[in-house]
Amino acid sequence: MGDAAIMVEGLRKNYGEVVALQGVDFEVPVGTIFGLLGPNGAGKTTTVRILSTIIRADGGHAEVMGHDVSADPVGARFQIGLAGQSASVDANLTGLENLVLVGMLAQIPKRLARSRANELLERFFLSDAAGRPLRTYSGGMRRRLDVAAALIARPPVLFLDEPTTGLDIQSRTELWEVIRELVRDGSTVLLTTQYLEEADRLAGRIAVIDKGTVVANDTTTALKARLGSTTIELEMGSEEEAIRSDALVGHVCTLANEVEGKTVRMGCVQGPQALIETLRVLGENGLEPVNLEVREPTLDEVFLALTGEHPLDGGSGPASKDGG
């Protein structure tokens, strides 16, 4: 199995009549962040629940650091930390109590659990709230504590199941920084997300999952190149200016350019370079956009490009079991 921290082969899972996973395969090398990207009900959470030994697969094979999750679940549990929507922390316990509890149940000595808990609370800016019950935490604080709980036993593999869903932009950015730090420390991270931006910012490799199968598995850069397209939208001062601008910068991006009223819309493979070039050309010709917008492809567009259909059109996914 070489250097794979996580190895998944032909994983299958049904909930009654509903097919949650129909043969999922991927490998995650040690010390990397792997993004599992998909809409609600795609099978992301089911995959994480199988890998973290919460539920058993109906078929296929999965290993974490060489431990088969169905043949040797206890061995696997010593290798993993879990945060996000698959597992909870206790709302009635304080931040410190929660971390010590998880640490003790992960079989580290109480004194060590306590000192690590204090370190983690400090690292996640929760020291001031360490003695407060979790009920009083904000959403962002709770997610940070959740990630801290996954780290207390210092497991080599971390599962972060939609860690930033429902967070505001600032909390999300803070959590991303934390996740990046973990990998610098040598951890392997499996991250599930509904946001392409999140997978793009954190993961070196992304598997796109839809209706229980992996529809794409590639490096982030290669995947984005395959999918096209950063959209650059220029709003000009007048319709006439918009037409002039389109003629001038049309060569910069060639994917589905269009002019609509005062707006020029361009699809670009290399977003940043295209933006610099566009603004340079416009500036040289004395044109200045009144409004400028740069959009990464949405998850919807990714799915459209990969599967030819919108993710929510199928409607047959096991949404109820896969959570939010």
Binding site: R77, S88, A106
Partner: peptide
């Protein structure tokens, strides 16, 4: 319901 049992299940306890 809260997911506490899932947490316990993922731990080597």
């Amino acid at each position: 319901q809260s997911g506490m049992l899932e947490r316990f299940r993922s731990l080597p306890m």
